[in-house]
Design a protein around this nucleic acid. Structure first.
Lengths: 239, 239, 239, 239
DNA sequence: TATGAATGAGTCTTCATTCAT
DNA sequence: CATGAATGAAGACTCATTCAT
């Protein structure tokens, strides 16, 4: 009986794993909106079975994300145990980018700190954050990474690199961009003190809606040109 | 010129602009999957009116993307006319990142070169690419940007920066990251010849499905540890 | 002034005619469900103009039907004036079939006596019926048509011939069928006193729903075969 | 055989049959445009259930048509097995007309050879055509049907008879018409070599649009009468 | 327990009709 | 008076979730 029960539990465990893997694949290929039925089909189970293991589609998505984070954590711990601090840190970043870009649509949601503040994901995310922070701190202590960088910076940088890699069709060229970007974390890199971003609101032609250039001085522009100004004038007369 | 009948169409033009703006806002806030009814509600019109101006939801999305690209193009042309080449180029990149990150979910689809190869968007995208290439080339001639960078690299870099900025809650910190990344394009930056990415396939425990480290030598690992190996053994005996 | 007004009215009259013709064409080609906008487009007017002349789409359809009936009436009167009774009668039938089959989807609704008992169509339909009855009676008096035929019979026969002609791709062959059918009205034709129609209701297998042969004697069949009988039996046991 | 799992599918099979029957009824009563929701309501299921069994409304319609054809085929095979050739042939035609007229709007689409050449219906239609051709040939060999009749003729004739029966409110009278028409297929019937159809184009009054008689000689008529001729003259003066 | 059938709310889209211009 | 833009009520179809078998 014990074995039979154990066998049953093992069946269930295997089913759970199959569903999780199928969900990860399906989401990587078709996006996060992939129908649950498609996931069930890929896993070779019925829709009901998916619901037996995950109370909702949301929960399934979060399990996929958590799983991804766990994989990243495993990679980080492996590197921490085997490499010198700086090497481990950059290796970790490369692993994050590599694994995440392989997982397609999953990554954006997972790496960044802003998105999906759902309960249930917290534990895996926390663990990931701890590993990241530890590797960063060690590398900073070893002098391999600039001191003015926070763990959140690294996470955001990684998210950006995933996007880059996804946006560049030519993969080697994409990897070069990633290395270029990550090198910005090294102490040698200097940040240009360039112009800051405008914080002006979107200003548009009141008549046709096209974007307007905001000039710092003088009377604010309301229309994109003489034609629209005239049109508005005419309407004022009519109204 | 367009006076006589324009009165009639002014309403329609304004409505079209309202719909486009509402769509851009809604998509920025709620993602590209925002229901068309929500867009109509925000624009203060009926669903039918949206369809009068855009033959399908797809077409509406593409009009929003095209509009975004046109805004970027306008910004690029303004900078090209007013600033020195290098300044214009980096100013353009900052504008791209700034405007795109304001527009939330729209940007990813628009800036990158891989996504959404739909007809109809082509014209705006082509124009954008031309402006980008021209600014890049001018900056490279002026010695302000590394020579080994293609327009596609810049586009991908911009897409990555948008993600970064979106991932970093602290906006000034996010901007610092963006500058750090863009500085990688300056001739002074050097790309580390680091380890290359693994191209090994995903290898997982046959029993529980967790990720496995692939080691270059020795017998391939099949299980994540002793527990799973034992479980599999037991099942082989039973089966 | 008077002429100007008259000109206006003439414009309106021409517009009405254009709409009516466009509607007839559109309905003949695309069916009675053709969108009103398509009709307006073909007529070269706005949707509002259609509504100025016809209070609803329904009314427009009925005007088209009435117009068709008027054409038929005109044809009938012409023939009555010019030909011998029997010739006129059969010529009228051929005209009905010919014109109606040209008008595609319009005919079914118009010729038959059962369909569309809407007010407004009545006048034209009544007129049509009168002409048909007069021609029939004259032909019967001349001995060219069997005496046991009512005007309703002729109308139904005509409706059937239109269907025939529409169903036969090969037009000459279709016309032969029509003549064959109409010849049944001549006194020489004899109606076979064949078996009458079953009036038995649709009987179907209670398990799978397939059609069953109804046999006049013996116990009524409930299932299409042994398989379904067994299935039903099993369910009775289970229930 | 199909016992173990059949229990699960029996429900589905019954539901499929219910939907099919409801669709046939609804289409017979309300036409082919009957909303899918109405069909679902009649079947006592949700809209989704209809879609589980038929991938689209189109597919459902075709299933209904195919089912109708299968019923006709069954009837034909029964008659072929039990009756003498000529009797079987005319009995088959009567069955077609009877069953089809009961099914209202379904018949037109199904019996004729021109309409709805959709894939998927082909198999059932082919089968129907084979049975029809076989019965026809046998009857012709037996001398009960004219030799110059093709299967397509018979199909078109049947379609016409269905229309006839539908157009004649008085059912016995309608049946008489059908027998009259079908008797045209017997060898004794002779086809009158009457006047052929005009192939002249539609000629209409240029002023009011009413139909004009085309006369073979003389100057072509442009207006329906003096009134319209005068109106047109006046407009020419004004214009 | 696993399955997949059923459900029904929600989405895109069309089109008859109204109404401002 | 003509135009065509706006409206909104349906209709076809999808899919997360529940539940009978």
């Amino acid at each position: 009986m014990t074995t039979a029960m154990a066998g049953d539990r093992a069946d269930a465990r295997r089913n759970r794993a199959k569903v999780l893997a199928a969900a990860a694949d399906a989401m990587a290929e078709q996006g996060l909106d992939v129908p649950l039925g498609e996931i069930a089909r890929r896993a070779g189970v019925g829709a009901g079975t998916v619901y037996r293991h995950f109370p909702s589609k949301q929960a399934l998505l979060e399990a996929v994300f958590a799983r991804h984070l766990e994989d990243l954590v495993a990679s980080g711990e492996r590197l921490a145990a085997r490499c010198a601090p700086t090497e481990a840190f950059f290796g970790f970043l490369l692993d994050i980018v590599e694994l995440s870009s392989r997982r397609g649509h999953i990554c954006d949601v997972v790496v960044a700190d802003t998105s999906w503040p759902r309960p249930g994901l917290t534990a895996a995310r926390l663990r990931f954050r701890q590993v990241l922070a530890a590797l960063l701190q060690a590398a900073q202590r070893a002098g391999g990474v600039r001191a003015d960088v926070a763990p959140e910076d690294v996470a955001a940088l990684a998210a950006g690199c995933v996007s880059m890699l996804g946006a560049r069709r030519d993969r080697p060229a994409g990897l070069k961009l990633v290395r270029l970007t990550l090198d910005g974390l090294r102490p040698s890199a200097s940040v240009t003190e360039g112009r800051s971003f405008r914080d002006s609101p979107d200003v548009r032609c009141e008549e046709c809606g096209s974007a307007l250039t905001v000039r710092p001085t003088g009377r604010p522009v309301r229309y994109c040109g003489a034609t629209c100004r005239q049109r508005a004038h005419r309407r004022r007369l009519a109204g």
